[in-house]
């Protein structure tokens, strides 16, 4: 068993970062979808001012937290992506 070459280097530091990257990428995808939906509703004018305010505040906070989390794991905005091969990038 021990003679087999180890394909994956399990370095605790990078595992954490890679995992964070994956999770944050998915969160970022959802955030953008939500924001896109919110902007469409604002554009079509079917939200009250109060609803707009709350929605905007939520999205703003979400973006803010994303930036904090990225910083904590040393990730740049462009790191949050997944290469889907022939389909291009996720984001």
């Amino acid at each position: 068993m021990t003679t087999r070459p180890r394909r994956v280097e399990l370095d605790p530091d990078t595992v954490e970062r890679d995992l964070a990257r994956l999770v944050l990428t998915v969160v970022e995808l959802l955030r953008r979808l939500m924001e896109g939906q919110a902007l469409r509703r604002v554009e079509s004018g079917d939200l009250t001012e109060e609803q707009e305010e709350r929605l905007g505040l939520t999205l703003m906070l979400l973006e803010d937290r994303m930036a904090l989390l990225r910083d904590r794991f040393g990730l740049e905005p462009e790191d949050l992506n997944i290469d889907l091969g022939p389909l291009g990038n996720l984001l």
Partner: peptide
């Protein structure tokens, strides 16, 4: 196109409506 990088966080923008309007403008 993308969100502003962490540094220039628009904390002066104030309200959620301003945020949405700014995003709409960018879009």
């Amino acid at each position: 196109a993308a969100e502003p990088a962490g540094g220039d966080r628009p904390d002066r923008a104030g309200s959620g409506r301003d945020y949405l309007r700014r995003r709409l403008g960018q879009q």
